[in-house]
């Protein structure tokens, strides 16, 4: 065999055996095979998502342009519900209350939770006890939580008023006066949520490499400066997530209102969701209830986007 022949043999061996078409088909079959298990897992989720989320959502939007639609037939009324919503004094008041509540609750619970988490993180001793103690309110059954609340805030027998009385201060009317009632609800929700957020931020703080904190110690930063300049900025993505979650959760303020105040005193604690609940069920004003629901959705989405823009930008890099 000459040198040239040998080269020719080599070239034959290098020839592709599949045509372009065959290769393309085999390749897409191969890719599809990989997708099947993925779809197997995602399929049920997508189904549940559309049945329980997407369809009710679209239905809600549709109902916001109708009257009735739950027990009786829906009747299209255009923007009637929306214009009634925008001119409703109680809703304006509810939105104001909810906004005040959200701001105070988030600021309070976050600053408390971050401080406590920071302290716990720097002091390992007794950490487990405090974790459980702080998480306790979330585990307490509602009926016990109610009793604890009763013993704290009862006008005559509550611990707080007993202390106030003993120290010659005026007793507090926790739920019967404004703004006390809203602040009482804020305290209750902060008490309930604090443990969760402490654990949340503690997990975040513990995920910060200890070298960073050590480096800052060497660089002369005291605990406050370390927390502000190193820990907090490192937690920024987590904080963004927390703010968004907290915004969404807190805008749903309802339970405490229903149980403790029914929106009173003098509309001092009506929340948007309480407003919606009353319209939807007690008054059967389905259209107004759904218009307000969709309106609330829009508000929260706007706030979420704003929060993302405000907190998220810097961590983008």
């Amino acid at each position: 065999m000459s040198q040239i022949d040998q080269n020719k043999v080599l070239i034959d061996w290098q020839e592709l055996s599949l045509t372009d078409e065959e290769f393309r088909r085999a390749r897409s079959r191969y890719k599809l095979r990989g997708l099947i298990p993925v779809m197997g897992f995602l399929g049920p989720f997508l189904l549940l998502w559309s049945v329980f989320l997407a369809i009710p959502m679209l239905w809600s939007i549709w109902l916001s342009f109708n009257t009735g639609g739950l027990i009786d037939e829906a009747k299209f009324v255009g923007f009637d519900n929306w214009s009634r919503m925008l001119s409703n004094d109680e809703l304006v008041r509810s939105l104001k209350n909810t906004a005040i509540y959200v701001v105070i609750a988030i600021l309070t619970v976050f600053s408390l939770a971050l401080t406590i988490a920071g302290l716990l993180n720097s002091n390992k001793r007794g950490q487990n006890f405090f974790k459980v103690a702080l998480y306790f309110p979330l585990l307490v059954p509602p009926i016990m939580a109610g009793m604890i609340f009763f013993f704290l805030t009862h006008y005559d027998m509550g611990i707080i008023n007993l202390v106030l009385q003993a120290t010659n201060h005026e007793k507090l009317n926790f739920l019967g006066d404004n703004p006390n009632a809203l602040l009482t609800i804020v305290s209750l929700e902060v008490w309930r949520g604090l443990g969760f957020w402490v654990l949340f931020f503690l997990a975040g703080l513990q995920s910060i490499p200890s070298d960073l904190i050590d480096a800052a110690k060497i660089d002369g930063a005291g605990s406050v400066r370390r927390f502000r300049k190193i820990s907090l900025p490192t937690l920024r993505p987590l904080l963004l997530f927390a703010v968004i979650i907290a915004l969404i959760f807190n805008f749903q303020l309802f339970d405490s209102v229903q149980v403790l105040t029914k929106g009173g005193p003098v509309l001092g604690t009506t929340s948007v969701v309480w407003f919606i609940y009353k319209r939807l069920f007690a008054f059967q004003d389905i259209g107004l209830a759904y218009a307000t629901s969709v309106g609330l959705l829009i508000v929260v989405v706007v706030l979420t986007v704003a929060a993302y823009g405000f907190l998220g930008k810097r961590s983008e890099n």
Binding site: P56, M57, L240, I248, L296, V301, T304, V305
Partner: peptide
């Protein structure tokens, strides 16, 4: 990604009232 997830969460909450009825 995050904002998408959270708005989906939001839908969940708002759909909840409707959900109660449906369920």
């Amino acid at each position: 990604m995050k904002s998408k997830n959270s708005s989906r969460l939001l839908l969940a909450f708002l759909g909840a009232t409707a959900l109660v009825v449906a369920a």
